[in-house]
Design a protein around this nucleic acid. Structure first.
Length: 277
DNA sequence: GCATTACCCTGAAAGC
DNA sequence: TGCTTTCAGGGTAATG
């Protein structure tokens, strides 16, 4: 499940692989992504064909491939999306939905079995025209989220802190896995009301969010099922997870607690009932 | 107005 | 062994 560290890993691989490369053709499967939203193949071709890639940016969990014309190609990996650079002569894997042919014979391929992802075109400098980008809140790493800011953001919020962290309108880029891990590191119960978070606990949580995300990037992402990088390699951060997916195991703090799993917002939430209060 | 829930999809894993 | 059911979850629309 690609979250900020996985998307950032893809970005860091993609930019040197693509910068200066010209797009020569565009292919789409014709199947809608994000379920009911078809890829606008004509807009994609207009934006990309004949243009060179200048940079690859990240905004929360979205990637923006900047082209030397006026446009950027926006990609969200959804649940199961992969961006791969592969030789154009190799067969496209099953569930390939978009392919950009590059000069030199390679292809940038968007592969997404569950089709929760998104590929769209925006005018550079007018990214807010895409509603998904317009609503995004603060990126927790640029600049690093601090306790004062998080504390101020939570004032008045009546939702649980876990829901708060997952709300992309507030903190943009944190997903289910890293939210669970950050709350564990900060010793905060996921059901704690966000608006009730003390300044000291907000400090601890902000630091924990930054720490787990940076660790995720350093480990090239968490691979539990689908996520792989541009070259098809899995990440290593799953070995660092303290609570996510560890229901029933002893708390890594060895405090006698056992990791519990509850469902909130239809997502699995893992925590230690002993040390997260 | 805000928070919560339902839903879209497919492959893997569990259950029978 | 092989078929069926369940589960995972991001983001948005619908509901409470």
């Amino acid at each position: 499940m690609p979250e900020l560290p996985e998307v950032e890993t893809v970005r860091r691989d993609l930019e040197p692989a693509l910068a200066g490369t010209r797009v020569t053709a565009v292919w789409t499967s014709g199947k809608p992504l994000r379920l009911l939203r078809p890829v606008d193949a004509a807009a994609l071709a207009r934006a990309a064909v004949g243009h060179r890639v200048e940079a690859v940016r990240r905004r929360a969990k979205y990637l923006l491939v900047d082209l030397d014309g006026d446009d950027s190609v926006v990609v969200h990996l959804g649940m199961s999306g992969q961006l791969r650079v592969m030789p154009g002569a190799t067969p496209r894997p099953a569930h390939t939905h978009v392919a950009l042919a590059l000069d030199g014979g390679r292809e940038l391929r968007f592969i997404d079995p569950r089709r929760f992802g998104l590929v769209a075109v925006v005018r550079r400098g007018d990214e807010e025209a895409l509603p998904e980008l317009a609503i995004l809140g603060r990126d927790p790493l640029a600049p690093a989220l601090d306790g004062a800011a998080l504390h101020a953001m939570t004032r008045g919020a009546r939702c649980a802190i876990k829901s708060f962290l997952l709300d992309q309108r507030r903190v943009a880029g944190v997903g289910n896995i890293y939210a669970c891990e950050a709350l564990f590191e900060a010793r905060i119960h996921p059901g704690t009301l966000a608006g009730r978070l003390s300044r000291a606990r907000a400090e601890a949580l902000a630091a924990a969010v930054v720490r787990v995300l940076e660790r995720g990037i350093a480990n090239r992402g968490t691979t539990l099922r689908d996520y792989v990088d541009v070259a098809g390699e899995a990440g290593a951060n799953q070995r660092e997870l303290r609570v996510y997916g560890r229901e029933g195991e002893a708390c890594p703090r060895r405090d006698g607690g056992r990791i519990r799993r509850v469902t909130t917002q239809a997502r699995g939430t893992f925590y230690c009932p002993r040390c997260q209060t």
